[in-house]
Design a protein around this nucleic acid. Structure first.
Lengths: 193, 193
DNA sequence: TAAAATTTGGAATATATGTTCCGAATAACT
DNA sequence: AGTTATTCGGAACATATATTCCAAATTTTA
């Protein structure tokens, strides 16, 4: 089945990230990854070097997918507050419709690996910075358009909403349902007056 | 070295919970636990059955220690808002003074294990319910004493502040420092007007 | 002082796990 | 058609890991 790559790198990373998402890094074995991806052992090691490297690439793939989703939202013709509301609504919907989805791979990676693996912490940290910045721009936009009134610099609200988002991911893994999650979002959004 | 137990169960669980906290369940080996606790292999299996059981007992021990701390705070002669503020302040201080402390064992357990181990999810879920309820009573107290004015039922704020708390634990693992964490707390507390 | 009760160190076991390696299979290129 | 380049299946390997088991050690009790 040569002479060129027989598998789609993105599909492999997608499948791998699902397994890592479900079981964590230390909880998933190479064999599980092989069956999930359909790859042969040798192909995996040829193309992804080793388990740890595959994990990092899965994290980055997962992050890129999330980034694209949120870029799509960002490009829509909505004011910043509406973007924030839409984002939270879709997160709440996703979490409550897929309670088996184990929260967020990046949050789980932060919990499991960030203190043991510098590269993991870098991915997690970049994700945090990027989202906080994006949220800040949304909030600034909402302020300029006078749909909200801020008591503090927009940057701080960016941090606050990212914190709220991280919380939601943990909450859904602790048994929180849809009403609870959306109540939390409502209170958080109320802080914009 | 018989004839009665040579080791202090609480100290063993304390040491074990530190290791599980650092490396997660799947990331820590029995050997690491043995060196951390000073126990012999046979003693560990005699007294704690196996690794999984030890993990659950460590979780519960960790939870009890946290419960006691917060009970101490609850018994102080403060109004509910002050209790909430004190709690957040000490969490922020702890997280920023011990950035190596890997967040919160229970949050990490939720991320790593709650979907794979029902008993873990029970501990995590109980912890969530208890803290949310406690926070609700604090907020009700603050309302009765007219130090805050609520726009929503106190219960919802209990959920919201627990969410904020979970977020902080993840944030500190994603590289957030003291100012960032306390900014977030300020915004959250502002939601009580 | 001897017997009983219990812990514990360490060997032993069985399995899981990450990784390597080589030959067979296959498609493109000459 | 034959050569080359590359993938892939599966065996093989080495190590890690969870767990069991037994004899030696030790303290209390009789």
């Amino acid at each position: 089945m040569p002479k060129y790559k027989q598998f789609d790198r993105d599909k492999v990373l997608e499948a791998a990230s699902v397994v890592f998402h479900e079981k964590g890094y230390n909880g998933t074995s190479i064999d599980e990854i092989l069956t999930a991806t359909g790859l042969s052992r040798s192909s995996l090691y040829d193309s992804f070097k080793d388990k740890h490297n595959l994990y990092l690439q899965s994290l980055e793939f997962y992050k890129e997918v999330n980034d694209k989703k949120i870029q799509n939202l960002d490009e829509k013709n909505l004011n910043g507050l509406q973007k924030l509301e839409t984002m939270f609504k879709s997160v709440v919907n996703h979490l409550s419709e897929h309670p088996d989805d184990n929260g967020c791979l990046l949050v789980n990676a932060a919990a499991e690996m960030s203190k043991q693996c510098f590269k993991t912490s870098q991915v997690v940290c970049n994700n945090k910075e990027e989202l906080q910045n994006l949220f800040s721009t949304w909030i600034s936009d909402a302020e300029e358009k006078k749909v909200v009134k801020l008591q503090k610099p927009a940057k701080i609200y960016g941090q606050f909403f990212y914190n709220t988002l991280c919380g939601l991911r943990v909450m859904s893994q602790s048994g929180a349902g849809k009403t609870e999650l959306s109540n939390i979002v409502k209170v958080a959004l109320d802080s914009l007056n």
